[in-house]
Design a protein around this nucleic acid. Structure first.
Lengths: 254, 254
DNA sequence: AACCCTGTTCGGCAATACCGAATCGAGGAC
DNA sequence: GTCCTCGATTCGGTATTGCCGAACAGGGTT
């Protein structure tokens, strides 16, 4: 691991975590000399990866990151192929659709279709959600390799609402249920009143590349248990998308 | 400029420019030893900034960039404050609205409101557009500091359509017109059939922080010259937004 | 006007990252 | 099945490079 690059990345993540930070704050945060941080910041600024506030002298993330983030999306195969499936799923279920991938202990939303009801909604592409508190995350986890599952389950599991599952035991049971049902369900585990139903998407190696699912008001998605039509729609979308990615017959692990 | 960080940034930009690249391709592209590039890539991968394709061994951009790009947007003051103005402008003009900032020689779209006509549209947030071929870019350039203007005008100016202005002379005249009118106009200079009307947004220092404007079919925006109602709407949105950013009375340079 | 808290610059040390060359592993051609 | 080639990966020595401590400069506040 080359030291200066690693440190530069940590600076970016520190700046991403909150608002503007100064050289002194960053050097304290990272435990480095001020001059070291300053040199890194100068280079990052030169590359457009950070910007310095002309008034306060503090630093914030730079525009090049937005371009690179966009380029990441453009090169994303799962995302590209999910467009028509997500659109169809949204129309059929009349709910918002999310496509996500697992990055570390969080789900990164790579595609999002609004609920087709003309209401004002904010785009969630780029948002990160704790894996254990959303249907998409649990759908991926339920079909992940043992090593990955172990890694994400061993981290701290934050309680977001009263129903969030935060013990390995409860989660393992829930993932087993998800494997049996073919879909994972989130019952107000991230936001009170909001539920989700999602199914894993597999690539040509049979690995879970991500998941697709619907999110919406709990009374619509889980009227008395998961709505069967929605479950079927989600499963079909996930299966179709998997096939497009080249998945063979073995669509599920174990 | 610290060497390894600079090189790491160049790798990211190279990967962002196209599709997957291998160690050898990158080392040839940057003129570095393979082992050097390899070390940088390993570090970048460790930080989630790049991903390695398990099959081909080639590298692509990583998910952390999407998160950072999103964080950039979250911390963006102009963008945050532009939400309600952009929404209002879209409703009033019945056209798509874009808010952009200047980054190097291109305009980066930081906010985008769809044309309110229920058609399927793709979100352009994160997209980069040559400054000289869009109304937003010209609105910013017309009010930029001489140094910035000189920098962007001296670069190569690509012809995108038959009407794209690509000489310094033609652009200077157009910018002068834009300053006089208070809005910049793009008449199919980026895409045939598409026009734009935009006005600069000023921050509390009186500097052009970006621009807001409408885009749409040329026959609606420029029926016989710029539609006066649209011009007025764009100017009002830009002025309101500037005021929110703390701009004083001096809303225009010179 | 003095203080304090920033961001910024400088110079020397040695740790650090660079490079060239060798190794490994996979895919294709015959 | 075997050879060949091309690309990713590893290794070790070198001196370049970036790190650090300490001093400087510039606002804002008291």
């Amino acid at each position: 691991m080359i030291q200066s690059v690693e440190r530069a990345a940590l600076i970016l993540k520190a700046l991403g975590g909150g608002s503007r930070l100064g050289v002194t704050e960053l050097s304290a945060h990272l435990g480095l000399a001020k001059a070291t941080v300053y040199g890194l910041l100068r280079t990052l600024e030169d590359q457009g990866l950070v910007e310095q506030d002309v008034e306060t002298g503090k630093y914030r993330l730079g525009p090049a990151l937005l371009q690179l983030g966009n380029a990441y999306l453009d090169n994303h195969e799962l995302r590209a192929r999910s467009f028509r499936w997500a659109e169809g799923l949204a129309v059929r279920t009349q709910e918002a659709v999310r496509v996500g991938v697992l990055t570390g202990p969080t789900v990164l939303v790579v595609h999002h279709v609004f609920r087709p009801d003309n209401s004002v909604q904010i785009l969630e592409v780029g948002a990160s959600i704790p894996w254990h508190a959303c249907a998409v995350g649990k759908a991926i986890a339920a079909n992940a390799s043992p090593a990955v599952l172990e890694a994400i389950e061993s981290g701290p599991l934050q309680r977001l609402t009263g129903t969030t599952l935060i013990t390995k035991r409860a989660l393992d049971a829930d993932l087993k249920k998800a494997r049996a049902a073919g879909v994972a369900v989130d019952d107000q585990e991230a936001i009170v009143g909001e539920a989700g139903i999602a199914a894993a998407v597999f690539d040509h190696r049979g690995e879970a590349a991500g998941a697709i699912g619907v999110t919406g008001a709990v009374e619509r998605l889980l009227p008395s248990g998961p709505d069967p039509d929605m479950v079927a729609a989600v499963k079909e979308a996930a299966r179709g998308l998997s096939r497009e990615l080249g998945a063979g017959r073995a669509l599920s692990r174990g």
